[in-house]
Every structure is written in C-alpha cells, then in structure tokens.
Simulated scan of single mutants.
Amino acid sequence: MELLRTSLHRAAGLRAPTVVLVEGASDRRALEALARRGGRSLDEVAIVPMGGITNIGHFLDLFGPRGLDRRLAGLYDVAEEGYVRRGLERAGLGAAPSRERLAALGFQVCVADLEDELIRALGVAAVEQVVEAAGELRSFHRFQRQPAQQDRPLAAQLHRFIGTRSGRKARYADLLADALPPARVPPALDRLLARL
C-alpha cells in the first residue's frame, strides 16, 4: 500500500496533458522505445506504470474527470479487461461494455500480454537473435532444459524466460521494441501511439 501511495504522489505532480496508464515499467519502456523509433514525441505525454492493473481505479481517480481531468489512454492485458471496464465506469468515463468501446476511450488490449505481442510481432527466430545479442542465449538454453519447459513451444519458452528474473521484462521490452521493423509494431501498441 505504501508503494501505491508513493506512486500516486509522484504521479500527481506530472504536468503532461495526456496520461497513459500501463501495468508496469516494461510497458512504459516498450512504448517509449517504439515512439522514439517512430519519431513520435512524448513531450506532452506521461506514461505512468501503475504497479499492476488492480491499481487502475486509484490512478483513474487521480487523472480522470473527477481528479486532474487529463486526457487518458492505456494499455492492458486481455485477462485484466474487467478491471479496466469497472475502473473507467467508476471514474465517470462511461460504461465500456465492449472492447471497441474501451479502444474508443483510448485503452488498447494486448493479447495475451505485452511480451506475447512483441514475440508474435518479431517472430521466435528474431527474438532468439535478440536474446543472443543480449548475451543470454546460453542462459536461455539452460532454461529450456528445465523439465517444465521441455515440452512447451519455443514462443512460450521465450515468454517465460523474459519474465523469470527481476528487471528482465523491462530490459527486453526495450530490446524487442528496438528490433521491431516499423511495419511490424503490434496493432495495440500502434493504435495507442497513434492517439498520442
């Protein structure tokens, strides 16, 4: 709870007219990397990691129409859609009964999550090249030999590997976003960046 209070206090000081709510640091880093590569300025945008989607209500209270009344957008995982819908409705932004309505409100869905979007967009061979360039291919091969990983598809192994160590998700969000050709940016991220 203290971490949430600290995050909200810091966020309250942001002056950007547009606020993008994301689950964590990896989402922010991927969006920043893609914006940088696409030549999009984020000078008027604050990308705010919420420390998990369950905190969305607090951030919508702060930045929504009953708070600082900023222009809002966001990125969320498909499994977390209910939190986003309920949060937007409680914050006075209207009912969002459909994914299309959520998108119209500026909230884009990742299927299943950010890492899945980036892996699918790049393809597993390119992701393995990124892992190799990051100096972690040997570590990944050791990870693949674990009994729980042996029968899983390569994309699932890469996804799990990226999430196994603290800081790795954020690091790979940068690396994978930087490796993406502009025409292969995942649709959810592309649509979100187009609104900014």
Rank of each mutant, 00 (worst) to 15 (best):
E128D: 14
L196M: 13
I119H: 04
T54E: 00
D116K: 11
G163M: 07
A125W: 07
D116T: 08
R71C: 13
G67H: 07
A179S: 09
L154D: 08
V124R: 11
L105G: 01
G52I: 05
P186E: 13
L75G: 03
E89G: 03
V78S: 07
A183E: 13
G94M: 11
G123N: 12
L105W: 03
S98L: 10
G52D: 07
R37T: 02
G24N: 09
V127K: 00
R165I: 02
T164G: 04
R37Q: 08
A179N: 13
L196N: 07
A95M: 15
T18A: 08
P186L: 12
L3V: 14
A91T: 11
P186N: 12
L8Y: 01
P97L: 14
Q129N: 14
L105F: 03
G13S: 09
V185E: 11
R29W: 05
L31S: 07
Q146S: 14
D69E: 13
L189K: 03
H141K: 15
G167P: 00
L21V: 07
E2L: 14
L137I: 11
L176C: 03
K169L: 05
V127A: 00
Y172M: 04
F63H: 02
G64A: 05
Y83M: 11
S166Q: 11
L72N: 04
A125D: 12
A183R: 13
G94A: 10
G39N: 09
R142C: 05
I47T: 01
I162T: 09
L193A: 14
L88I: 06
D43W: 14
V45Q: 09
A126C: 15
E117M: 11
Y172C: 06
E23N: 06
A112I: 13
R191F: 12
L34T: 06
A11P: 12
F161V: 03
L189Q: 04
D69Q: 12
R99E: 15
V22N: 05
F59D: 03
V185A: 15
L118T: 05
Q144W: 05
R36A: 10
D43T: 06
A91Y: 04
A125Y: 10
A11M: 08
Q144T: 15
Q146H: 13
A125S: 14
P153Q: 11
R171W: 00
I119V: 13
G87V: 07
L42G: 09
L68I: 08
A188F: 08
V109W: 03
R184T: 10
L180N: 03
G135A: 12
Y83H: 07
L192R: 02
A91K: 09
F143M: 00
I56L: 09
D27I: 01
E136G: 01
S7W: 02
E80C: 01
A125M: 10
Q150S: 15
E80K: 02
F63R: 03
S7F: 07
A16R: 02
H9M: 10
R152H: 12
C110T: 04
S41Q: 07
T164A: 14
E128N: 10
G51F: 03
E80D: 09
A188E: 04
A91R: 06
A12S: 14
A188M: 10
L118G: 00
R40A: 00
S26A: 15
A125I: 12
Y172G: 05
A156V: 05
A79L: 13
G123P: 07
A103Y: 11
L180P: 04
P182W: 11
R142H: 15
H159M: 04
Q108M: 09
Q129D: 14
Q150M: 06
P65Q: 14
